[in-house]
Nucleic acid binder design. Structure first.
Lengths: 130, 130, 130, 130
DNA sequence: GTGGTCTAGACCACG
DNA sequence: GTGGTCTAGACCACG
């Protein structure tokens, strides 16, 4: 169940997108599985259906889910193909920003590596076999 | 010299803030050193002085630089004191988001650790001696 | 309702900041309560929205209010944690300045203590129960 | 000897004005005493003579010192006559601002009264007899 | 409708 | 010349 932080600066729809991706990586959602309809999800999370719709559209564009008219929305096979070097560069850039901010909070490299490992554990190991 | 990506989603003033913090961590700017005036920086980066002013204000609030009475703006002594656990938690959260996105680009943990190390090198190691 | 003294040397946005803090301490604004939008406040006080925005930003950085995704701005739970000795020292310094000026207006210590008490009363006593 | 904090936000000339008033209240400077010339003071404090000049002008307008052409600058008799209710109201207003800020740093009334007493002691008691 | 960002341009105090 | 404040007005993302 995706959790929305209403206090967060991150837009709701982005939180939904990331939350679903996280559940897939964790194996809580498996390929082929049906996810709640826009309206169901909206009422579950107490949010505006438009917001959920926006999130689902984004996930569909990213190839993470697929919508079948009148049937529902389903998790797609997780195929990740290395390739978009531009997107990877962006992530690296964001990582640099995080490291800069962390330094100013007196957090050093070894600790950040520990964080990474913990996060990777949370997501179910390097290889995610469901 | 701070570089601004006019295409980036990140606000200009935040890019300036991060850019200056980066230069300090790299030792390119040292405590006591004068940084360009608001107007100079604005013309260098082809931006409005108000935008630079906003960045400098933010840096001052964060204790990174200090402004002296019509004389200019200076880099402060770098004192980082562990403490703000709330901010640290936020960074951890952003790290999780990055890892999720990275996974979908087929980037795994070992590679991200390598990135971290490279970034840390770029910033001059754990202890930054100028 | 915050009152702005257009004659004052104190910047408008600082007056707004202090005015809102005062209303919170007085219990006129309670945690969770929505405060007027930037535009509303601007038109109420006959000021430019940018000025109000600056005040709200400052209050948010100070942890006094919080902004929620296009929904508005809300008063945060009032948590004051002793700690920033540097800021406390600054206030002490300002108090010294006030005492010096007061002396030159023939106002002595007992009278200033009376003022303090009156002010504290106005703010609802030591413990402010809403 | 007046001390100037070059880091302070308070204008240099105001620091000089307050510093001299403080020394008079403390009895370190007594009526009739000659204070250093603008140039002397400027070199002592390592400041621009224009800044000292501005401070002396302000003190003269306030009736604190008097300048005799070719003779020098002297401390005047300390006559404080209650009267300017407007100025007193301003000080009260600033006191309110200080109390608000103090509250947000978890400093309560009794502590502020202690501060006041300490400050009054530093200035040589309620009645300053030299 | 909400706040966030940015530009343009003006005026000000300080040194 | 320096930064600080303010207005006016524009455009944007989010919900």
């Amino acid at each position: 169940m995706v959790i929305i932080d209403k206090q967060s600066k991150k837009p709701f729809y982005e939180q939904v997108v990331l939350g679903i991706k996280e559940e897939i990586l964790q194996g809580l959602l498996v390929p082929g599985e049906k996810i709640p309809s826009v309206r169901e999800m909206a009422s579950q999370l107490m949010m505006n259906p438009n917001t959920i719709s926006k999130a689902y559209k984004s996930l569909e564009e990213q190839g993470v889910i697929t919508t079948v008219q009148g049937r529902g929305t389903f998790v797609k096979e997780l195929v990740v193909s290395r390739g978009d070097e531009e997107k990877i560069a962006k992530i690296k850039g964001k990582m640099l920003d995080l490291v800069i901010e962390a330094r100013y909070l007196n957090v050093e490299l070894p600790e950040m590596i520990t964080w990474l490992s913990e996060i990777a554990d949370d997501l179910g190991g390097t290889k995610n076999e469901s």
